[in-house]
Write a protein that binds this DNA or RNA. Structure first.
Lengths: 331, 331
DNA sequence: CTGAAAGCGCTAACAA
DNA sequence: TTGTTAGCGCTTTCAG
């Protein structure tokens, strides 16, 4: 590997001078500067960022810990974050926690060990307490991790309220909530969806129904459970899900059972990714503002990194939008 | 940041001893070992991997350069790779090249600068010549980059032949190929799909038709182009696409135009991700063996890293599978 | 079985 | 405007 000293020798200057050219600070004659640049070019020199970071300089590395990357919602969020970070000269270390606490813990240690400048956490499993002990800047997506870690998310209550209201407006009376339900554990931001659902239905004197679907279930199992629900309960005429994929599954099942959507059954999803809008525009759903979420995650992280801002019990909430499609309105 | 020296002091030993415990080599008394472990625990010590790698040790970092992460195919490939690498104690730096050669070049430099142990490249834009000049281990997915860089991919010829054969078997006569067509540039592995398509149709005395769709087109534009094609050409009765998303789009358009699939129009996709099989099981498609591809990419990379194996014009080809769905056969 | 000292590639006082 | 020197946190000879 060619090193700074090689460049210095080739250019006939000291290592310091080369360093100054690279980081361009201090006063350097134009002549020296070009000599150095030429030498770098000829040797195809790339500075060793490890050595550089060892001096206390930033690594320009950000760790991303997410529960999945194949889910279109996370894929789009990760892609957006990556893109923004790249523009700010940061690189991304991708950590797929896969709902495995041990893997998440190992990854966290790795990130610390690699001296990343910051960490963005989006896991939906119960948060590791270790996050609170890390000195790195951290922000969280839609999840409480520690008092000192700011949370960014969309307005789960408002979003779910929109969904429930839309179902009721499309004259559904027998409505099910499919997805994560709050089961004894501590209340997390996403649990607001269930709370809003209960509230809106109660406001309309309707009884809320639930089919709990945890994230660890395979798609086939979920499929079977939904099929079971719809096949044995002819009265169901409205379903809201906590993600669009479950909504898709529901629609597939309805088709298998020859249940007409939206005549017999109205369906509303949640997430509203570009993917769904492109390839399943018919689905009524609640769109989370992915670009805004990504931007806010990053700016909040940068405030900690660059301005040493620290947060206490801070929760940033962004509004969701209802996208009306053919699964609640026939056209 | 607590450092090795802090641990040493706390344990009342020399830094050398601590280092030996961490890397567990040399001979250490059990007593010393536990003292050190205890000190590490108490101080919540994480070794600084930058300092460690500066000595020439591996960084345990692998760069992944892909054209997209939101496309389910790449998302699944990346997820599988990440998972395998994690098991081998490697971390992933995710580089979304986004079909932008400059971004790709910048990322490559960053990866070199970060001393990654290896790079897996899956970009489908024309390969940068710079890849040939890098000293790091590199493998490529389905793309020629340089003689020294091994290529791993599925059997594009065989896959496309399966697709075309399936269309013809379902009695399609007027068949279109939708997707990347080889246009003057050098021949890449994926161009075998077009070649196979031409060959199979020619074998059956059918004329091949094409709607070129480059990857830089937005989904809306593609949608429009496909709509244009189907609306103005009633005779079309078979379509094969070079990816499943385009197939989905085609089916959506057909539905808009009230063209019955598969009675009037047979459709075959390409990629066969788990995502499609879960949420669009009806689609006939060619499934690429993502787990095998990931594994072969990694083992080929590791051979270079660990055993200093070098390759010349090596091309590993894995077989595809036809998945028969309702878009070519009515049931 | 343990420690002292040199050095990985780079940056940052401090001099000149 | 440029160079000398020390040192980032760790590993690794070489001694003991």
């Amino acid at each position: 590997m060619t090193k700074l000293a090689d460049v210095a020798k080739k250019a006939g200057v000291s290592p310091t001078t080369v360093s100054r050219v690279i980081n361009n600070y201090g006063a350097i004659s134009q002549k020296t500067r070009s000599k150095v640049h030429e030498a770098m070019k000829e040797l195809n020199y790339q500075p060793n960022s490890l050595a550089r970071s060892l001096q206390g300089k930033k690594t320009q590395l950000i760790g991303l810990i997410f529960p999945s990357i194949t889910n279109p919602f996370y894929a789009e969020l990760i892609a957006t974050i990556e893109n923004q970070l790249f523009k700010n000269h940061y690189k991304v270390i991708l950590c797929n926690a896969a709902d495995d606490p041990q893997k998440e813990r190992d990854y966290l240690n790795m990130l610390v060990s690699n001296q990343v400048d910051g960490i963005i956490v989006g896991t939906h499993a119960k948060g590791l307490k270790e996050y609170g002990e890390v000195k790195q800047a951290i922000v969280s997506f839609d999840r409480y991790l520690a008092d000192s870690i700011p949370i960014i998310g969309s307005d789960n209550y408002q979003g779910a309220a929109l969904a429930a209201t839309e179902l009721i407006a499309s004259s559904a009376k027998n409505i099910y909530f499919l997805g994560n339900v709050h089961a004894g554990r501590d209340l997390q931001p996403t649990d607001q969806r269930e709370i809003a659902f209960r509230k809106i239905l109660s406001d309309h004197n309707l009884e809320p129904h639930f089919l709990p679907l945890t994230t660890d279930l395979s798609v086939n199992i979920k499929h079977m459970m939904i099929r079971d629900l719809l096949a044995n309960n002819q009265k169901i005429d409205g379903i809201m899900t906590t993600d669009d994929l479950t909504a898709l599954l529901t629609i597939n099942v309805a088709q298998e059972l020859s249940i007409n959507v939206p005549q017999k059954l109205r369906v509303v999803g949640f997430d509203g990714t570009k993917f769904i809008q492109d390839f399943y525009p018919d689905l009524t759903t609640i769109a989370q503002p992915i670009p805004d979420i990504a931007e806010l995650l990053i700016t909040t992280l940068f405030k900690q990194i660059d301005e040493k801002v620290s947060y206490q019990n801070k929760h940033f909430i962004l509004p969701n939008k209802l996208i009306k499609g053919g699964t609640t309105h026939s056209n």
